[in-house]
Design a protein around this nucleic acid. Structure first.
Lengths: 336, 336
DNA sequence: TAGTATAATGTAAGCGCTTTCATTTATAGC
DNA sequence: GCTATAAATGAAAGCGCTTACATTATACTA
């Protein structure tokens, strides 16, 4: 592999000049620039990124921590981030945190030890305090799907409350008045916010919320099934169900089917997230779109702007979810 | 951040000694070792991985190229790889190739320019020749889901032929004799192999393959729908359908439903890959399990063994798929 | 045409490690 | 106690770049 030294020799200039044309920052005359470029081409020169990093104290890498690498959700996020980063010549180092505090911290330290220029984190278990301290350190942090007031600038979030509101409103508009709700784990802020949106819509339509028609799941499909079973066991009538995410909706739908309930004819269901699976299950799930890919992309842009000085970029911190109408929710009047 | 120099000062030894205890390779007396360790702890010292890389000419990073970051398939693969690598303190740099030759090559070069110690590739578009040349270079390559005879040692594959065979055999055992087949794009070797397995099973059972009941899709669900439509349009009877992957099976199932066909009562369907979606669609899809996660893990082990000299590891190059029975395929006798 | 500002290029000192080779210290044999 | 050998440590030269500072070439001004 050719080094900068050989390029400089071939081009008949100094190392510094070669370096300058590489980083095309300093002023180099057109003549020497092309000489250098030619020498590079001739040697098939590729800068050694490690040496660049050591000398410039910048690794050109951004560390990403997600809860899981598999699953439909994080993949989209990663895709958005990778796309944006690679276009800028930065690379992406990934780690998984598995929604456990120890593992998340371990992942973050791992990333730090790899001298990333910035961190994009999707963490759930780690405390606000930890993140605030982390952000106060010398490595910039951007948080996806987590809002911490002190770090507002660094948070890229979805307006979950609005999502919960939209999901519920759709059902209310379709004439439903007896709604059940399957929540996510209420210690997670997104679960809480979605629920708050649900309540707001209910209030707006003057429908009183019935605590007996509420169940708390854990965002997994199995808990969706379990919650649905609970709800059904109470023998209370309800014509619609809003689930705090698609996976639970899928689980709930299955239980409904086992009980001979026609969806949506006898029970309308709406989910949240708009995972790919929402298109595959039958009937196709009406849900709230979560633009994870876009948000990942935005997180990457944040980094480009703040760390790699691409001033021009416009940033957006909070995304508005939108309702995706499919087949699992319908007018109450069509109830058999 | 403390440097090795400060550690050496505090411990009262030379840089070289500190370096030695870090890499605990050279012989250092217990006494000085503990002195150094204490100094490190006191300073909260963390080696600068960039400097280590530059000096040792080893980046401790492995580059991964997958077709897509999103989607259910690659996520599992990444999870397997990341897991294994992190346990060994290596980091993972990712890039997406989008199944296009130019993009794949670009991704590979990107990874190389990042001085990865090894590459784990899941590439589809790039030619065998390119890969052979690449592997002949100075950066080791391991291929997932691609078999190139000259690179046999470096390939981690699934026995796709066996999978195709098993899927088909299941249906034949259930008494079906009129089978339709929706293939993947036949220029992809896995699509070809799965199809070959199908033919073998058919031959074994003395069933003649009817070319009219064959359609070629592109592994996407929409093509599954389109192919199913084509098949149905021919008005030829068939009681079972094998699809070269789950997504196409899902698409096909939907079209079947639209045509009023009961699955599995009137049409048995089997897929391939065992994606998460196979559990979510209704009826749950009988399919062939593709152990991507395990294979990713194995690819990482390959790297550990060959590049990072962890001799002890046992390697496995070809994985055997297994049938996962769910609800979408049943005995022919139960046909209404 | 000298005098000055400015642009272009070069020099050399690191960045924080690893590693070779030389030196010192410990261990053993007699 | 003294040499022969092995074990432990140190000195210093890089790894391939960036960058502050010094120097030289060029363009203007008066």
């Amino acid at each position: 592999m050719a080094t900068i030294y050989q390029v400089s020799e071939l081009a008949g200039v100094s190392l510094a000049t070669v370096s300058r044309v590489m980083n095309n920052n300093a002023r180099v005359s057109e003549k020497t620039r092309s000489k250098v470029l030619a020498a590079m081409a001739q040697l098939g020169y590729r800068p050694n990124t490690i040496a660049q990093s050591l000398a410039s104290n910048r690794s050109n890498s951004v560390g990403i921590l997600v809860s899981e690498l598999h699953g439909p959700f994080y993949g989209d996020m990663l895709a958005g981030i990778e796309n944006e980063c690679r276009a800028a010549g930065k690379h992406v180092i990934i780690a998984a945190g598995h929604s456990e505090e120890a593992s998340e911290i371990d992942g973050i330290e791992f990333l730090i030890s790899r001298s990333c220029d910035a961190l994009i984190l999707h963490v759930e278990a780690v405390s606000d305090d930890y993140l605030i301290k982390l952000a106060a350190g010398n490595i910039p942090v951007v948080l996806i799907n987590r809002y911490i007031p002190q770090l507002a600038e660094n948070c890229i979030c979805l307006n979950n409350e609005l999502g919960g509101y939209l999901a519920t409103k759709q059902l209310l508009q379709q004439g439903h008045r007896q709604l059940a709700y399957i929540a996510g784990p209420m210690w997670k802020s997104d679960a809480k916010d979605r629920y708050a949106g649900h309540l707001r819509a209910m209030a707006e339509y003057g429908v009183t919320f019935n605590p007996a028609l509420f169940a708390e799941g854990d965002f997994q499909d199995s808990s969706g099934s379990a919650c649905m079973q609970q709800l059904l066991d109470k023998k209370l009538p309800f014509t619609a169900l809003v689930c705090a995410n698609d996976e639970m909706a899928a689980g709930a739908m299955e239980v409904a089917r086992e009980h001979g309930l026609q969806v949506p004819e006898q029970l309308s269901i709406v989910g949240f997230d708009n995972l790919i699976l929402a298109r595959y299950i039958h009937p196709k799930l009406t849900t709230i779109d979560y633009p994870v890919g876009e948000m990942g992309r935005m997180a990457a842009r944040w980094v480009m702007k703040h760390i790699y000085q691409q001033q021009a970029l416009a940033l957006k911190n909070v995304f508005e979810p939108v309702l995706v109408c499919r087949e699992s929710a319908c007018e109450l009047s069509s109830l058999t």
